[in-house]
Amino acid sequence: MLTTRIFRPTMTAGVVYARLLGSAAPLQSIGGIAELILNVEEEIKKQKDFSRGGGGNRAQVNRIDSVTMSAKLQDLNPVNLARVVFGNTAAVVSSTVTGEAVTGYKGGLIKLAHLNPSVVVLKKAAVTIAAAGNYEVRPEGLFVLDSATGITDGDALTVDYAFGGYDVIEALTEAAPTLEMLFAGVNEAMEGAANTVELHRVKTGALKSWGLINDDFAELDIEGEVLLDPTKTGAGTSKFFKVRMQ
């Protein structure tokens, strides 16, 4: 029986899968993960012994207060990002725009409705404004040069352009997600022995931090709580999480 194996040094690596609890979607990898930690916090009730001097306790009850999960996500893909900012996602397909109305100011950005414009035509009324000496095309829009001769502050302009597909995440539009999660790991200290941890019902919190500018790879720090799953029934069946190890 493997349960008799006492020698089991452990250093694990692996993949984390997740999906919205109760959805018909497949369990999908969340991508790279630098850290995944479970913490079991307990509440201890003690009954003091007052029958004699010297103190001490005559009884103790240990109850689980909560099971928490923390993780550092390495892949800032639209699904991960939407989950940790309580948002929704939408895919915008490539297309073209004709006559988008904007206002121009020297030394300022003209923010366009879509990302990465190309084949740009900027007009004042019916007159086309040349890019050279007037503006630069940037991923976020058009930057009007301080020395622009074809644009006056406050000019009403129109822009024609093409753009490629991209994803949009609208933050803080949804309730905190509840996920089913599965860690599929290998124990590198035991010749790659397999083990899994199934978290039945995880209520995830908002991201703890997101370094938009820093000197290292960005990660999403998140926390959550493993809640009771009432659908798990039967004697000896955990309503919280299950571990399988080789």
Results as ranks from 00 to 15, higher is better:
7 F>G: 10
10 T>N: 13
11 M>P: 00
12 T>R: 07
17 Y>Q: 14
18 A>T: 06
26 P>L: 08
27 L>H: 02
36 L>I: 04
38 L>F: 05
42 E>D: 15
42 E>R: 10
52 R>A: 15
55 G>C: 07
59 A>M: 10
63 R>T: 14
65 D>L: 14
67 V>K: 01
67 V>G: 00
70 S>Y: 01
71 A>I: 02
75 D>V: 06
75 D>W: 01
81 L>F: 14
85 V>C: 09
98 T>M: 06
105 Y>M: 07
105 Y>P: 03
111 K>V: 10
119 V>I: 08
121 V>W: 02
122 L>R: 02
122 L>N: 02
125 A>H: 03
127 V>S: 13
127 V>D: 14
135 Y>L: 08
136 E>K: 13
139 P>F: 05
140 E>V: 09
154 G>L: 04
155 D>E: 14
162 A>V: 04
165 G>S: 13
165 G>R: 04
166 Y>H: 15
167 D>K: 04
167 D>G: 08
170 E>G: 03
173 T>L: 06
176 A>D: 07
177 P>S: 11
182 L>Y: 00
184 A>M: 12
185 G>I: 05
195 N>R: 09
196 T>P: 01
201 R>W: 01
204 T>A: 13
206 A>F: 12
209 S>C: 06
213 I>W: 04
213 I>E: 09
215 D>A: 10
226 V>D: 01
227 L>F: 02
232 K>C: 09
234 G>K: 01
237 T>I: 12
239 K>I: 09
245 M>T: 12
245 M>Y: 10
